[in-house]
Computed example of a mutant assay.
Amino acid sequence: MTVFKEAGQLLRIFIGEANRHGRMPLYEWIVQQARSQGMAGATVLRGIQGFGANSLIHTTKILRLSEDLPVVVEIVDTEEKIEAFLKTVDPAITEGLVTVEKARVRMYRAGGNRKARS
């Protein structure tokens, strides 16, 4: 389990919904890797519009492009764990943007005795 003393890092991975790792969506693979490496947690956010390095607009407004909407995977953990995790996922991210920012963790709490869902 990750122990924070306020200093942490926020990892953001900006990819497309259609990006894959093998047969699996890349965002799903990234979350599975984060869980298996004991990261503090991961959240996937699906955008309604965006563009990347190729300047192609992806939006829910155009039916044919709505299949590749922007996706952001966010993970907050210690600097050491983020750096180690990046070594795992770097080869799988063939297009997209990855940022790392300082994060000041004010609280990190787990709920009651909830069972993990697979």
Rank of each mutant, 00 (worst) to 15 (best):
I48L: 13
I48V: 13
I48A: 13
I48D: 15
Q49W: 12
G50R: 15
F51Q: 15
F51R: 15
F51L: 14
G52Q: 13
G52P: 10
A53K: 14
A53M: 14
A53H: 08
N54L: 09
N54I: 09
N54W: 00
N54D: 14
S55Y: 14
S55L: 12
S55E: 14
S55T: 14
S55G: 11
L56Q: 09
L56V: 11
L56F: 01
I57M: 10
I57A: 09
H58V: 03
H58N: 15
H58T: 09
T59N: 13
T59W: 03
T60N: 10
T60Y: 09
K61Q: 13
I62G: 05
I62F: 02
L63S: 11
L63P: 03
L63N: 10
R64P: 07
R64C: 12
R64V: 04
R64M: 15
L65M: 12
L65T: 09
L65E: 08
L65V: 09
S66G: 03
E67K: 13
D68Q: 11
D68F: 02
D68W: 01
D68R: 01
L69K: 01
L69P: 05
L69G: 05
L69Q: 05
P70V: 06
P70F: 07
P70Q: 15
P70C: 11
V71S: 04
V71W: 00
V71G: 10
V72L: 10
V73L: 07
V73T: 08
V73I: 15
E74D: 05
E74M: 00
E74K: 00
E74S: 00
I75N: 12
I75S: 07
V76T: 10
V76G: 03
V76H: 01
V76M: 05
D77W: 01
D77T: 07
T78W: 00
T78D: 12
E79T: 09
E79H: 02
E79P: 07
E79S: 04
E79N: 08
E80M: 03
E80V: 10
K81N: 06
K81V: 08
K81A: 02
I82S: 12
I82W: 01
I82G: 03
I82A: 10
E83I: 05
E83N: 11
A84H: 04
A84Y: 01
A84D: 12
F85H: 00
F85P: 05
L86S: 13
L86T: 08
L86H: 06
L86G: 10
L86P: 07
K87S: 11
T88H: 09
T88P: 07
V89R: 07
D90W: 01
P91D: 10
P91T: 07
P91Y: 00
A92M: 10
A92F: 04
A92Q: 09
I93W: 00
I93V: 15
I93N: 03
I93E: 13
I93K: 00
